[in-house]
Amino acid sequence: MLTAPTWMNWKLSSWIMIFRTALEERLVYRGDFALGTLMRFLPIVTQIFLWFAIFDAIESKGENPKGLIGGFQFEEIVAYYLLTMLGRAFSSMPGLASGIAKQIREGEIKKYLIQPIDLIGFLLLNRIAHKFAYYVIATGPFALVFFLCRNFFINGMPDLLVISAFAISLLMGFLIGFFLEAAIGMIGFWFLEVSSLLFVYMLFSFFLSGHMFPLTLLPDQIEAVVNFLPFKYLAYFPAAIFLEKIPPEDLPLELAVEAAWLVFFIVVCRLAYGRGVKRYSGFGG
């Protein structure tokens, strides 16, 4: 029988081990990684020219002399796209849901059922390590691009309160992204093949998270609905906080709503896992 402190120690050291292994695994491909990160900014070049052309057309007609679309100026739209890249760097979870579904399908999930390691905790730690490795390498390319584009941030740095709200929203964005996708992966307990379902989810989240364009551009009725959905926390919300598009007095409430969504997805994920494991039957070895 283990006493409480040694149990804690054992638990801690195994989590540290998992973290270190995942970190090292990621750093093997650092060259490809850094180049890939830089390339991911290339579509923004197209966006800059597209939006310049649009604002150019609007301003030349003189109907909209301030040049505002959905409350955004040209420079702010570009800054918005850059910030959503940052938001997605936190909230995107490549391969998470499909990985879980694959483990269920191929029976690999057995090892979590017979070992004293919690699947969701293991995956979360793995993800944190991967993200951590990613930031170590991606900071360079990100800093370079943000430095080159500094003129698009016309309001300069926001104050400390906004910055901290921004940081909190990024962290919660990461967790929401994780638990949302993990919950989708759990569908694998019920359906063997989830890849097409995942593709549909990816399409929706690309559009509804604000990755494609700021959500304030949507027609009012649609915007009201989209604002109720959790997707906006994956990209739109952090960027809108940084660009001070969310009034400071609303920030606490908005962040509380986000936290509620996070709790919701944690519960859904846990429930789905619990139910799924009960359904699951593994054969052979």
């Binding site: 649009i54 150019d56 057309a57 609007i58 007609k61 399409l203 027609p219």
Partner: peptide, 29 residues
């Protein structure tokens, strides 16, 4: 499903450009 998701992608793009043309008459003056 592959066909449906391709068409979904198309609709999303069409939606994006329809929204753009709510704000502007042309792309570029």
């Amino acid at each position: 499903l592959q066909c449906v998701s391709s068409v979904g992608w198309t609709l999303m793009n069409v939606g994006f450009y329809l929204i753009l043309f709510q704000y502007t008459d042309t792309i570029g003056a």
